[in-house]
Design a protein around this nucleic acid. Structure first.
Lengths: 155, 155
DNA sequence: GCTTGACCTTCCAGTGACAGGAAGGTGCAG
DNA sequence: CTGCACCTTCCTGTCACTGGAAGGTCAAGC
C-alpha cells in the first residue's frame, strides 16, 4: 500500500502521515527500491488510532504517550483513564473560557441597538467608556478586565 | 511614556505592543532621539481597546477591523453588532465541537474500570476494537469517525 | 519508444500570535 | 564610572500541519 492509499483509509492526508513520521510519532516506513513508502494493514490500525485520538482533542504529544501505553502490555488501565480525565478537564477549562467570552460579548451586544446610526455602545465599552445611566459601578476600568486570565489556547 | 509603562497600563507585554506595530495594527510610535518609542494617553485607550477585544476572542485581524470601525465616524452600529454576532457564532461552534469531544471521551472512560489491570477499553476502542457484548453496531469502523469535521481551530 | 498523467520524493516557506533570548545601545542613580 | 534597568533590532521557536516547487517513478495508451 502506498502512502495515499493509507491516507484514504485513515482519513488523514499523505502530508500528515509524512509529518508524523518526521517527528517520530510513527516509525519510518519501509521503502521500495525507488524510495516509495509502503504500508501494511497494521499501519492502518495505528494511523486510525492516531486520527481518533487527535479528533478527541489530544495533542500530538499526548497521542505519542497513548501509543506508548497502547504498545505497553504492562501499563495499567488507570494510567490511560487518567490521561483521558486530564483531557476532559482541559476541555472543560476551554468551554468555561469560551462561555465567559460569550457572556461578555452578548452583554455588550445587548446595549447596542444595531441600526443605521453611528453611535455604538459596543465600541464605546471596548474603549473603556461606560455610558451614564446604564451601569454605575467602576470609573473607566474593570468592565472587561479578565484579559490576563483569558490568554489563548487550542480547542 | 516608554513602552513598558504602556505595557503595564494595558496588561499587554512590550513584546506584544512592538508586534502589533510591526504588523501594522497600530501606527509606528514616535521615537526619542535615542530611538525609544514614546506614547501618550491616547495610546493607552487604543491598546486597552485592543486588549479587551482580544480577550473576547476576536482575532488580531478582526481587531484591526474593529479599530477601523471605531475610528470611522460614518459606520453604522449594525456593522459592529454583526461582527460581534459573528464572534458569538464562532464561540458557539467551538463549544459545540468541544462538547462532542467531551461526550466521546466520557463515553470511552465509562467503559474503563481504571485499575491496576492492563486491560483498557479506552485504548481498545481508539484502536477500533469494540468488545463483544457492549455495543453491537458497526464492525471496526464508525465509532469515532467524525474526524474530518473535527479538525483544529483556535479557542 | 514516447508521452501523459497520476503518483511519489525532499525541502522550504507560511500559518497565528506571540515568547524567548542574544547582542548591543541608553538613562539615571549612587 | 559603574551598575542596573530599560530600550533597540533580529532571529528562532511554538503547534500541527498545509502549500508549493522541483524533480523522480509507474502504468497505460499510442
Amino acid at each position: 500500500m502506498n502512502i495515499s492509499q493509507l491516507a484514504r483509509k485513515t482519513g488523514l492526508t499523505a502530508k500528515t502521515i509524512r509529518y508524523y513520521e518526521s517527528i517520530g510519532l510513527i516509525p519510518a516506513a519501509v521503502r521500495t527500491e525507488a524510495g516509495y513508502r509502503t504500508y501494511g494493514d497494521r499501519d492502518i490500525t495505528v494511523l486510525q488510532f492516531i486520527a481518533r485520538s487527535r479528533s478527541l482533542g489530544f495533542s500530538v504529544e499526548d497521542v505519542g504517550h497513548l501509543l506508548t501505553l497502547w504498545q505497553d502490555r504492562s501499563r495499567t488501565s488507570a494510567e490511560v483513564k487518567a490521561l483521558a480525565a486530564q483531557q476532559v478537564a482541559e476541555i472543560d477549562r476551554k468551554v468555561a473560557e469560551l462561555t465567559m467570552m460569550r457572556q461578555a460579548l452578548t452583554d455588550l451586544m445587548q446595549h447596542c441597538h444595531g441600526d443605521d446610526r453611528p453611535d455604538c455602545p459596543i465600541l464605546d465599552r471596548l474603549a473603556g467608556e461606560i455610558r451614564a445611566g446604564q451601569e454605575a459601578d467602576d470609573a473607566g476600568e474593570g468592565c472587561c478586565e479578565h484579559h490576563s486570565s483569558f490568554r489563548e489556547s487550542r480547542v
